[in-house]
Computed example of a mutant assay.
Amino acid sequence: MGNMVEPVKPRIIRGSRGKTFLLLLACPLFFLAGIGTVRSPTGGHVVGWIGIFFSGLSVPFLIRSLIRPHTLTLDDSGFMIDAGPKKVAWQDIKGFHVWRPRNRSKLIGYNFEPGARKDTSLMRINRRLGAEGCLPGGWQFSPDKMVEILNAYRVQALARQAEHARLSGLG
């Protein structure tokens, strides 16, 4: 039993209720702006209806996120968002980076190692934009801090996996 490698302690990072609340407060403003645009004699009706539709559609999702914030679960084998159907293994990604698609809000992006995932057309489009995968926004920490936390956790988990393989005689 002296060859046991201690697994990396699981960690759960939750979405920020404060950030969600601010988005929820902004929805009526976008809704009213959409109504104003639709009623405007100068046009912009399509843009107005799009604003009304998306601001109204986002309210139930934001209320759900206020009640039950999304979670990112990290463990020694990989990460998973909200107990989703797919866990992403640490060895399948190259690491995390701050991604700003088209100079918009900062997101947490990552790219897959070659051969780790099937190269789909969506993945190729995303790669051209700067990240093959990304995490949703709205976490307790800034995207910069999240990247720091995730990369440190990934390095630690991969080191533990390598040590376990070495001690098991598999590596």
Rank of each mutant, 00 (worst) to 15 (best):
M1C: 13
M4S: 15
V5F: 08
P7M: 12
V8G: 01
P10Q: 05
R11P: 00
R11A: 06
R11I: 01
R11N: 01
I12A: 03
I13F: 04
R14T: 08
G15Q: 13
S16L: 07
R17A: 07
T20I: 06
F21P: 09
F21D: 02
L23N: 09
L24Q: 01
A26L: 13
A26F: 07
C27P: 04
C27V: 03
C27L: 08
F30M: 11
F31Y: 07
F31R: 02
L32I: 10
L32T: 05
G34F: 06
I35T: 10
I35P: 10
I35D: 03
I35Y: 12
T37V: 00
V38Q: 02
S40F: 00
P41H: 01
P41K: 03
P41N: 02
T42I: 15
T42L: 14
G43W: 08
G44S: 05
G44H: 05
H45P: 07
V47P: 03
I50P: 00
G51T: 07
I52P: 01
S55I: 06
G56Y: 03
G56K: 02
L57R: 09
L57D: 02
L62C: 04
L62P: 04
I63T: 01
R64K: 15
R64S: 11
L66R: 09
P69I: 04
H70N: 14
L72K: 06
L72I: 09
L74G: 01
D76T: 12
S77L: 11
S77Q: 13
S77K: 06
S77H: 11
M80W: 04
I81T: 09
D82T: 06
D82F: 06
A83H: 08
K86N: 15
K86M: 14
K86R: 15
V88L: 14
V88G: 03
W90P: 00
D92T: 03
K94Q: 08
G95V: 02
R100Q: 15
R100V: 12
R100C: 14
P101S: 00
P101Q: 01
R104S: 15
R104T: 15
R104I: 08
S105P: 00
L107P: 00
I108K: 01
I108M: 09
G109V: 00
Y110E: 02
F112I: 04
F112C: 10
F112P: 08
A116I: 06
A116S: 11
A116P: 03
K118N: 05
K118R: 10
D119A: 05
S121E: 15
L122W: 08
M123Q: 11
M123A: 13
R127C: 06
R128L: 14
R128C: 10
L129V: 07
L129F: 14
L129A: 11
G130L: 14
E132S: 09
E132R: 04
E132M: 13
W139L: 03
Q140D: 10
F141K: 10
S142V: 12
S142A: 15
P143A: 00
D144T: 12
K145G: 01
M146Y: 13
V147E: 06
V147A: 10
V147S: 03
I149M: 15
L150I: 08
L150H: 04
N151D: 09
Y153N: 07
R154L: 10
R154F: 09
V155E: 14
Q156H: 14
L158M: 12
E163I: 02
